[in-house]
């Protein structure tokens, strides 16, 4: 069996099995296409809220004094980013977490290429695609989930679209990227399942449903 390609799994693979999710392979990853059923998930996305597993996207961490300059190789706008902000295209996002730490989010399977592009950077480059989970919280009532989950002030006028902050949700440390239609959470892998289950628990009041990438595929910007 040497030469066989082994599948990469999301940190919530056990939850998929428990909920009977319908999974597919994307760029070598085993990820849920839908978790409950497509119709209910789409309705929840329109009317309530959904929690979608995007753990298969690329996540590369750049750390060092010249982190912004190195990240600019991916997107030149990174050079101008102040901490706690981001620059995004539909497929890629660069988060300035601190003045010396940037995170690059990219489509599934593209992380190796990103690391390649950054070869020769003076900063430390770490491919965290497997070590970090990613959940997108979307839907018109997602704020009601957040306000049951986080003691940090995430009011939209204080943390606007494009903001990238690090905080704790349900005692799990995570980074958060705010886009126009979702709050994207990035917890460490070992905590990801706990965070996912905690969000579903408190989200039951506003009608949060787990959903798959067929309902909401990964994207960071509506375009523009």
């Amino acid at each position: 069996m040497s030469g066989a390609r082994l599948l990469k799994k999301s940190p919530i693979a056990a939850v998929y099995r428990r909920l009977g999710a319908d999974c597919v392979e994307v760029a070598g990853w085993h990820i849920a296409r839908h978790v409950v059923d497509l119709e209910r998930e789409r309705r929840a996305l329109r009317e309530a809220a959904v929690l979608v597993d995007w753990s298969h996207i690329g996540k590369v961490l750049i750390r060092g004094k010249s982190a912004a300059r190195d990240a600019a190789k991916i997107d030149s706008r990174a050079l101008q980013l102040a901490p706690l902000t981001s620059c995004r295209t539909a497929k890629t996002a660069i988060l300035a977490l601190t003045r010396d730490e940037m995170m690059v989010l990219s489509p599934p399977g593209s992380d190796a290429a990103i690391v390649q592009t950054l070869d020769g950077a003076t900063s430390s480059v770490l491919n965290q695609s497997g070590g970090t989970g990613c959940f997108a919280l979307a839907g018109p009532r997602r704020d009601e989930v957040i306000e049951r989950s986080c003691a940090t002030n995430l009011r939209r006028d204080r943390v606007p679209i494009g903001a990238a902050v690090q905080t704790t949700m349900h005692r799990v440390h995570c980074a958060l990227l705010r886009t126009a239609d979702a709050d994207i959470l990035l917890p460490a892998r070992e905590y990801a399942q706990s965070l996912y289950e905690a969000l579903l628990d408190v989200g039951s009041s506003p009608g949060l449903l787990p959903a798959g990438i067929a309902t909401l595929p990964p994207r960071f910007d509506l375009g523009g």
Binding site: A13, H170, R189, S194, A198
Partner: peptide, 12 residues
Amino acid sequence: HLAPIRRTAMHD
């Protein structure tokens, strides 16, 4: 109900 648990990749 919400106390976090850390799980290894092979936990399940």
